[in-house]
C-alpha cells in the first residue's frame, strides 16, 4: 500500500533527523573547537541533499496521474456532478437544472473514465476501496470537468467521499458504486 510506505519513509526520515539533532545537541556538552572545516562539510551536505531531492523528483514526476491511461479508449464513461451535499453519478450527462443519478456498476480490469464537475462550490471526488484506502481522487470544480481514468482490479463496493471542505454537511457527502 502506498500510504504505508509513505508513513514508513516519513518515520524513517524523522528518526534520522532526531538522531542527528540529538547527537549535535549532546556534542555541545563535551565542547572543544567546534566543527572542523564547516565550509567543506556544508558543501557536501548541500550536494547530497540536492542529489537525493533530484532523484526523488525524477522518479516521482513521471508517475503523476494526469495522463494515466491516456492512450486507451475507456470501457465506460461515468458522469459525476457534485452538489452540496451529494454526488450524482450517471452513465448519461447530468442536467444542471434537474440533476439525477443512477446506480453504477462497473466492469473490473477495464479503464473507466469519470468526468467530474460541480454545480455549486468546489468539492472533492475521492474513491476509497473495500479496505477503506484512498486509491485515487480529483477535484470537482464548478465550470470545469476533470477527467479521471482508473482501472479497478478488485471487484466489490467502492465508496466516494468529498475531500474538499464544502460546508456544513461536508462529512456526510458520499456515494458509492460496485465493481463486478
Amino acid at each position: 500500500m502506498q500510504q504505508s510506505s509513505i508513513l514508513l519513509l516519513f518515520l524513517f526520515l524523522m528518526g534520522i533527523a532526531l538522531i542527528v539533532f540529538i547527537y549535535i545537541f549532546m556534542s555541545s556538552k563535551r565542547a572543544d573547537q567546534g566543527m572542523s572545516n564547516p565550509l567543506k562539510k556544508r558543501f557536501w551536505f548541500f550536494l547530497i541533499l540536492t542529489i537525493i531531492m533530484g532523484i526523488f523528483a525524477s522518479v516521482t514526476i513521471p508517475k503523476s496521474p494526469y495522463f494515466a491511461f491516456a492512450d486507451k479508449t475507456p470501457a465506460k464513461v461515468i458522469h459525476v456532478a457534485a452538489m452540496q451535499f451529494s454526488f450524482f453519478l450517471s452513465e448519461k450527462a447530468i442536467d444542471r437544472d434537474k440533476p439525477s443519478g443512477q446506480k453504477i456498476e462497473l466492469p473490473a480490469n477495464e479503464v473507466i473514465e469519470f468526468r467530474v464537475t460541480s454545480f455549486d462550490v468546489n468539492h472533492g471526488f475521492a474513491i476509497y476501496d473495500k479496505s477503506n484506502r484512498l486509491i485515487t481522487q480529483t477535484q470537482a470544480m464548478p465550470g470545469y470537468v476533470n477527467r479521471l481514468r482508473y482501472k479497478f482490479k478488485e471487484p466489490g463496493e467502492y465508496n466516494i467521499l468529498c475531500l474538499e471542505y464544502c460546508g456544513v454537511a461536508h462529512q456526510l457527502m458520499r456515494s458509492s458504486f460496485i465493481v463486478k
Partner: peptide, 25 residues
C-alpha cells in the same frame, strides 16, 4: 528540528504521485 521534520512531511505531500492519496487527508 520540528521544522525539518515537518518539512519531510511537506515534501512527501508536495510530490504529485503521493498527493493523489494524501490530498486533503
Amino acid at each position: 528540528a520540528g521544522w525539518v521534520i515537518g518539512g519531510f512531511g511537506a515534501v512527501i505531500d508536495a510530490t504529485i504521485s503521493n498527493n493523489i492519496v494524501l490530498h486533503n487527508t
